[in-house]
Each structure stands twice: as C-alpha cells, then as structure tokens.
Write a protein that binds this DNA or RNA. Structure first.
Length: 407
DNA sequence: TCTGGGGTCCTAGGACCC
DNA sequence: TCTGGGGTCCTAGGACCC
C-alpha cells in the first residue's frame, strides 16, 4: 500500500527560535533579517557556527565552520549564543501541534519530524491540504517557519523538504524523482558525506541520477552495505517505518572541549568525574544500566583515541563507571596535550530485565544510596546544585553543560 | 581566537570456540 | 612435516546525521 509521509523541518532552527524568543522578550531586531549566526563560546574554544541567517548564508558561511572564518567572510556578522532550553521549548511546542494530525510521529532530531499520515487524512482533505495547514499554523501560532516534504517514504519526504527554502512545501513522488532529484549533485543525497564524495566522483558519479543509473552491484562492490543503501536512496527506495514509539537511547555520552589543552592526568580525572556524573545521572533517570564504558580524547592535533571495555555486570553506579573510566583514561593518555575529553556508556539494558551476575557484590548498597540521594537533590534544585566533582573545584574556567529537558 | 556535542551504525582484526 | 573455516564476541576507529 502506498503510504503518505510528511517531513517537517524547521528553517534555520536555532537561529529562528532564538529570533522568536528575542522578539518575545521585547527586542526589536529580528536576527533572521540581519547577517547573524548562532555560535558556541569562542573563549571556551567552542567557536563554531551552529546556525546562520539566510543573509549570513549569502556570504558563504556554513554550519560547523569556525566563527573566526565566518567573520572573515562577513565582517558585519553578529554572533549570538544558543540556548538549548529555549530550543527544547519550541521543539516540544511544534511536536504537540503535529500530534493533532497523527500520533505516528517520529522525532528525528530537535528540529525535524516525520509524520505517517496514511489513514489519518480527514474526509475531503488530501496530504497537500494538511501540509498547507501545518505550515500556516506553525507560522501564525509560533512565529517561525517550516519546510515540509511530501512523499510515500521517509527518504523522499526528507529530500523534498530540503528543496527550496524557507517556508516551502514540496512533493517528491516516485514519478517526480527523475525531474526533481536526479539533477541534484550527489552530495545532496541523504547519507552522502564528504568522505564518500571523492570516491563517487572517481567512479564518474556527479549527480544523484548518475548514482541511480549505475549497476547496484558496482556500488556494493565499492562500498559494501553502505553502497547498497545510497544506491537505493538515489532510486527513491526506502522501506523504513516512521518510528513513532519513544525509544530508549542505545548509548549516553558527554564530552567537553577543554578551555585549553590539558597535560596533567589529575586535571583530566577531575573533568572525567564530572562527565561520568552527568552520564550516570542520565542513565538512572532513563532507568537503564550500562554494559560498556568508553573514554575518548582528542589531542591538540585533532587526533582522537578511544578505549572501551565491557563491565563484569551492567551498572548505573557513578563509582563503578568512574573506576572503569579512570582505567581507560590511563590507558590512552600518553602525555600528549588533550583538547577534548569524553565519556560514553553503551550496550544499555533495562534495569528490570538484567541478569544478576555472580560477580555482582551487594556491598555497593552504600554507593547506590549516595547516587540516589544526590539525584534527588538534583531533581529538586537543578542539576548544577550539587556534583561530586563540584564544578567549582574543577577548573574555574570550565563551564559544564546544563541539562536540557527533552520532556 | 581554527576546527561543538550528541547520537547511530558499520567495518575490520583478533580471540576464542567448535 | 604448512598453513581449515565458520560463528560470535570484543575492541578501535570512522562515516554519517542534525
């Protein structure tokens, strides 16, 4: 059966949301109408472009590039700091509006949703009517704009929403693939990144159409599973479902670019504990246990190293994750200046259904009590109220993240 | 003042087992 | 007295997305 899928994508999400919030606070300048970007804190060495206004885009500014470069391209550029609390607020507002049309919604990212409208169209209305209504309502009720892509699967709907921006609705039905999608450069295809591009070009593939017309076998030979996937995408093939059920995360991580390169293991360990605390706090909130701990560093030369290890039994204990993380850090740290430090936990399992291991001792009851007591304080007074690491004791220069609420 | 942070998925090699 | 081989698990690294 042919499905009816919408992809709703907020235009310049972070910048638009900041613009709307500022206007609401009484500011008169709409930062969408000036050369502006949302950027990270340059003093904390997080100075990259997170979002740009269309005017900034006209100067050649791209997401992810250093603000330093962006300023060279556009000396009059205005830089604003992002606020993730605000972003979650608008993301949730949009989601709730969309829920009025179907309950089959996949939140693909903070600013993108897939809607499965199959069987959800009200009498006398077609999918375009619904898209028009959503587009209009979002603009009127929230003050920001969205692009909407319409098709019979997620891939095509997503490609469609990416066509002309902002505030536009596009269809990309199967029969429109040759005229609307094949002419585009292959780099525009979802999942074709900067690493694959040169390889594809060497094969004589410049457009999505070039890729579609290759033999599938040739792509599989050159790229394996990935080759099969992008070949299918170029032909508009995607049978994946709109995943509307809230999924538990498969891994939880926290990393930080340090304000300057660290060369002492003691200082790194202090930060490591703060990272572990946040990760395990989130673990416990999700009622998950981790089987694997991973520690990652990035050197001053931008080389990354990581070590991971399986635990004897799954845990959400700050202490146990910290012990393992310290071990892993000591394995990778060879005295090279460290720019970034990160901790992740993986292979997460539900708290209830885990096996009780023979190795698991029961004398960690004390640790459990400490964890849950601290969690309660965090719930009540905010995450920053108490940490074992105590961010004040760490480096005064470090600003740890606030925990954004997904809801 | 050059280069964020949070994810998912895949690959490849080695260990280990049968 | 010459190197088998398939399957699974573990680990490191990398690609891609927003």
């Amino acid at each position: 059966m042919k499905r009816e899928i919408l992809h709703v994508d907020v235009n310049n999400a972070f910048l638009s949301w900041s613009a709307v919030e500022r206007l609401k606070q009484g500011e008169t300048v709409d930062i969408r109408r000036i050369p502006a970007i949302i950027g990270g804190d340059e003093e904390q060495r997080k100075g990259v472009v997170l979002a740009k206004s269309n005017i900034a885009k006209q100067f050649g500014i791209v997401t992810g590039e250093p603000i330093f470069f962006a300023r060279k391209k556009c000396p009059k550029l205005q830089v604003f700091q992002g606020d993730f609390k605000v972003y979650y607020k608008y993301s949730n507002a949009l989601y709730h509006l969309l829920l009025e049309y179907t309950d089959k919604i996949e939140r693909f990212s903070i600013d993108e949703c897939f809607l499965d409208m199959t069987g959800y169209l009200p009498k006398g209305k077609n999918i375009m009517d619904i898209a028009l209504e959503i587009n209009k309502r979002v603009k009127e009720e929230f003050g920001f704009t969205v692009n909407i892509g319409i098709s019979e699967n997620k891939l095509l709907a997503k490609m469609a929403s990416d066509f002309e921006k902002p505030d536009k609705i596009h269809t990309l039905w199967k029969e429109e693939i040759p005229s609307k999608m094949w002419k585009l450069p292959v780099s525009e295809l979802f999942m074709v990144g900067k690493r694959s591009l040169p390889k594809l070009q060497k094969m004589g593939i410049k457009t999505i159409g070039d890729l579609a017309q290759k033999e599938e076998k040739e792509l599989i030979h050159a790229f394996g599973k990935y080759g099969k996937m992008i070949w299918e995408y170029s032909n508009g093939i995607d049978n994946s479902e709109v995943n509307y059920e809230e999924e538990k995360p498969k891994g939880i991580g926290n990393s930080i670019t340090l304000p300057y390169d660290y060369t002492s293991i003691e200082k790194l360990e202090e930060v490591l504990l703060a990272l572990v605390e946040q990760v395990t706090y989130r673990l416990r909130k999700e009622e998950l246990l981790a089987n694997v701990v991973n520690v990652q560093i990035k050197t001053n030369e931008f080389k990354t190293f990581s070590h991971q290890r399986k635990l004897d039994f799954p845990t959400d204990s700050t202490k146990l994750v910290q012990d393992m993380a310290k071990k892993l850090l000591s394995e990778i740290y060879k005295g090279i200046p460290v720019r970034l430090l990160g901790v992740r936990v993986d292979q997460l399992v539900e708290k209830e259904q885990r096996q009780i291991s023979l190795f698991e001792n029961t004398d960690n009851e004390k640790q459990k009590k400490i964890d849950s007591t601290l969690d309660k304080i965090k719930e009540k007074y905010g995450y920053e109220s108490i940490t074992r690491a105590g961010k004040m004791q760490i480096d005064k220069n470090i600003k740890l993240k606030e925990l954004g609420k997904k809801e």
